[in-house]
Amino acid sequence: MPNSSQSPAPEAQAHEPRVVAFLCKWCSSAGSDLAGVSRIQYSANATPITIPCTGSMSPLYVLSAFNKGADGVLVSGCHPGDCHYMEGNYLARRKLYLVKQLLQFVGLEAERFRMSWVSAAEGAKFAEVIDEFVGDLRPLGPQTRLKAKH
């Protein structure tokens, strides 16, 4: 709603993407912690949500995040073979592959949903993943397709 009586519109600034990051508590969550204690500078756009295992990711979490206005959703877990529960990340890989395909099929921008494997020792990789994701989201602007309009 442009209003000429107001001061210059803040929309003139570039849209800052908001990322919801679902992080496995056994690896990526610790990886993000390592990025923090190592004082690595990276984008502050991600809201971390710790989950017990990527295998516990419900597709509904992803859809709900987009519904509530997330510009991007990241799911990050343990490298194949490293799951604390032996096979949770393999199950997540299959399930979230289908979620990604479905979101692309209905026309959500392909860049908006991403998965990564980040171990507890990969603080630097975690910072890279977030930076790269935010960098890819910025040109897309706000996510309006699945966001609730009410």
Binding site: L63, N67, L98, L102, K149
Partner: peptide, 24 residues
Amino acid sequence: RWCERSASVSESALYHLTRAIHLA
């Protein structure tokens, strides 16, 4: 509330996509 009952684009999308994933 994962999904509101209003028949708007976002809520219907959430319903149909959830249903599609449940049927995968």
